[in-house]
């Protein structure tokens, strides 16, 4: 009857590249876990949005119901993500503190046509979506029909992932 090889033996005979791969994998898992702990997560509720949307050839003023989304801010790097609830869309944003002397707790994050400004102390935020009107419609080449808006609201720290 054959005896099972002890695990120690397996470890000894595992080729070096495989062991390296396992080590890298373990390191990646540890790093990922650490990184997850270093994100500040907020649930944000927009009270409402104001803006414009194309109607015919002109932009008409509109008022929109506010959205809810999750905003995550890295504690180690000047980056954040914003995930709008219900749409599944995720924005990857670069962040800065525009007025470090006068408003050191107010951050501003942007992803091209979207800008998210939030005071980390109070949770007050403003969120603008500048995608509409300015980008060309892929078919007509004229202004696209998406809305151009700015909204206000409050963020609260999430109680956990």
């Amino acid at each position: 009857m054959m005896r099972a090889e002890p695990i120690r033996s397996l470890t000894v005979t595992t080729p070096v590249p495989v062991r390296c791969a396992v080590a890298v994998l373990l390191a990646a898992v540890v790093t990922t876990a650490t990184a997850q702990e270093q994100w500040e997560i907020y649930v944000c509720t927009e009270s409402e949005e104001a803006g414009y949307r194309l109607q015919g050839d002109t932009l008409a003023r509109n008022r929109y119901e506010g959205a809810t989304f999750t905003f995550s801010l890295s504690a180690t790097d000047p980056v954040g993500t914003l995930e709008e609830h219900g749409t599944g869309g995720m924005l990857y944003m670069d962040c800065l503190i525009p007025y470090e002397d006068k408003a050191p707790t107010t951050i501003s994050c942007t992803e091209g046509a979207h800008t998210f400004v939030m005071d980390l102390e109070s949770g007050r935020f403003a969120f603008s979506r500048l995608f509409g009107y300015v980008f060309p419609d892929p078919i007509t080449g004229g202004p696209n029909g998406d809305a151009v808006t700015v909204g206000v609201g409050l963020c609260k720290p999430s109680q956990g992932i």
Partner: peptide, 26 residues
Amino acid sequence: DGAHAFVIEKVSGRFTYTRHLGWAYP
């Protein structure tokens, strides 16, 4: 610049512009 955002389509000249100074800033 963090507080203002400006998007322009250079060919048509259309732009959108926001000023984020109110509300969020203390």
